[in-house]
Amino acid sequence: IFGEIYPVKAEVGVMRSMSAHGDYEDLCQFLACQNPELVRKLFLVHGEYDVQIDFAARLRRKHFKEVVIPDMHETHLLD
């Protein structure tokens, strides 16, 4: 790292059977325990923009009122 040698203190493994990223269904299942009426805002900050747009529409159909896709470095104040 930056020209310095460090001993390895980790073990690296490979998992070929699953994705590191949740798909629509995984994320919807994760949110299923939330009451959409009590969730003030959901921020989608990962993934391609067109996928975020589709996912935001899906979340709105599930009655999450404010789904935000912020621009890079955009800030939001929470009430």
Rank of each mutant, 00 (worst) to 15 (best):
E25Q: 14
S19M: 09
C33Q: 13
V51A: 12
A20V: 08
V45H: 01
R58D: 00
D54Q: 11
F30R: 04
V68C: 14
A57V: 01
D79R: 09
H73W: 12
L38M: 10
V67M: 03
V14Y: 13
Y49A: 09
A57E: 07
E25W: 09
H46C: 03
F55Q: 03
H76V: 02
E48C: 03
D23Q: 06
R60V: 07
E66I: 08
E4P: 00
D79W: 10
P70L: 04
I53E: 13
R40G: 02
V8Y: 06
I69Y: 02
V51K: 14
R16G: 15
E74N: 09
H63W: 03
R61C: 03
E37S: 11
D71H: 06
C28Q: 09
H76Q: 06
D79C: 03
V67P: 02
H21T: 14
P36W: 07
D71C: 04
P36N: 07
P70N: 10
S19V: 08
I53F: 07
R40Y: 01
D23Y: 01
E11F: 08
V39G: 11
Q29I: 13
F55T: 00
F2I: 14
E74Q: 15
P70H: 09
M18N: 08
Q29Y: 06
P7F: 03
K41F: 05
R58N: 00
R58C: 03
H63V: 03
F64S: 04
S19D: 11
L31W: 04
I53P: 00
I69S: 04
A57P: 00
K65V: 03
R40E: 13
I53A: 05
L78V: 09
H63S: 13
R60K: 15
L38I: 07
E25N: 12
L77R: 06
Y24F: 13
L59F: 04
G47D: 13
L44Q: 06
F64Q: 00
F2P: 01
D23A: 00
L31Y: 02
C33R: 13
D23E: 11
D50K: 12
